[in-house]
Amino acid sequence: MSNDFNSRFVSLMARKGRTSPRAPVWVGGWFVVGLITIGLLTVMMGPAGTYTQSGYRGLMMGEVDMADELADDMAAPKNQVPAASERFPDEGPLAGEVYVNVPVLAHLSADNFNRLMVAITEWVSPEEGCNYCHDPDDLTAERPYTKIVSRRMLEMVMYLNSQWGDHVAPSGVTCWTCHRGNPVPENIWFKNDDADGGSGALGNTFGQNAASWDAGLSALPNDVMEAYLLDDQNLRITPTNDLPMNGVTQIGTKQAEWTYGMMFHISKGLGVNCTYCHNSQSFRVWEMSPPARVTAWHGIQMTRAINVDFLDPLQPEYPANRLGPEGDAPKANCATCHQGAFKPMYGENVIDDYPSLAAPGE
């Protein structure tokens, strides 16, 4: 304000019986509203977070992590890889020469074979001990069923480390990656016996509006695991043609809903948002996407191979109480390994201490 305006304003206030200027009542009201707004925003925003930018500025491509929550999760027992004991020299008699019925690990020295058995016990059955997979009266026997399953799981771990480096390298995987000290991994799935939602007054719901964990607690279809992690359906939203012509089927709403349901699962399982794998300028274009999208694509194919080639075929070996509502074997999804982290155990390397699990015969 100019000095002339200030003089006239003070003079006006004096004529009204005021010795000093006073702000209008509404100014004080807005001040109170402002304080309330700031308080609410502070409560809503919660603790301080960190923002990691993953794309160009202005595209909202980044991950927001609450610093205290991230620190707590990283320190959680499930994300602490058990310390590895020192490896023995690769010399001396082989496990196949000392023990009977060790077809998968017979090439290891007997000392390193025992070292790996101790580690597997800590990874999978720390409370049950060796008897979880072995008959204490006859260690060579093909019982209990867990011995047959665990042998196949060892073959699977070697297969993943040797054939799916595009997804698991360089950290690798071991039994700990999924089990985290539990005989049965916490995040498994079965075929959904009521995925269609039944038929009623409103018709068939096709498993929607059921708030399924399989679809990240969204209202999207809850049978996405079977569609993409067991069957070989392609995740697709954008139509490949303008109109159905010459018998070509148009990409429909149902398939888009399935795709979004699977994306919700990945987001929940990895603890990330959409822009961890996609460019917000164009979710569809691969050339504009972050490298993580390629890694995720390999992960989907890898998980399907795990279920089709290793887990689902084990159904005859399981007792009834280990099977799902439709009698199928337990299967893996993204959360089985990741358990809410963008990389299992936040990228902790688990394979270097156990090279015998890196590939068959290593």
Rank of each mutant, 00 (worst) to 15 (best):
M66D: 13
A320L: 03
G181A: 10
S20L: 11
P77E: 09
A106M: 09
N222R: 08
P144C: 02
L154V: 11
V81S: 04
S282M: 07
E287Y: 03
A256P: 04
L243N: 09
V81E: 04
V184A: 14
V118R: 08
L220R: 12
A292H: 11
V100P: 00
K268E: 11
W297H: 06
V248M: 13
S7P: 00
G17A: 08
E97P: 01
T19I: 07
F264A: 14
W123A: 07
A219T: 12
M225Y: 14
P325S: 04
M288F: 04
F206Q: 12
E348Y: 08
A110M: 01
Q80T: 11
L108W: 05
T303K: 03
N246P: 00
G92K: 08
G324H: 05
Y228A: 08
D73T: 06
L94A: 12
G58L: 08
E348G: 02
K78T: 05
S54W: 07
F342G: 00
W26F: 12
R322L: 01
P344Y: 02
A320S: 06
A219C: 00
T249Q: 14
L108N: 05
A320V: 04
V157N: 03
L35Y: 04
G340I: 02
G252E: 13
W30G: 13
Y276Q: 06
G55S: 13
T249Y: 05
A210H: 03
A169Y: 11
N114Y: 00
E326I: 04
A320N: 02
R15G: 01
L202M: 14
C274T: 04
G198E: 12
T177K: 12
S54I: 15
V64I: 12
D73I: 04
P316W: 01
A211E: 07
D65V: 09
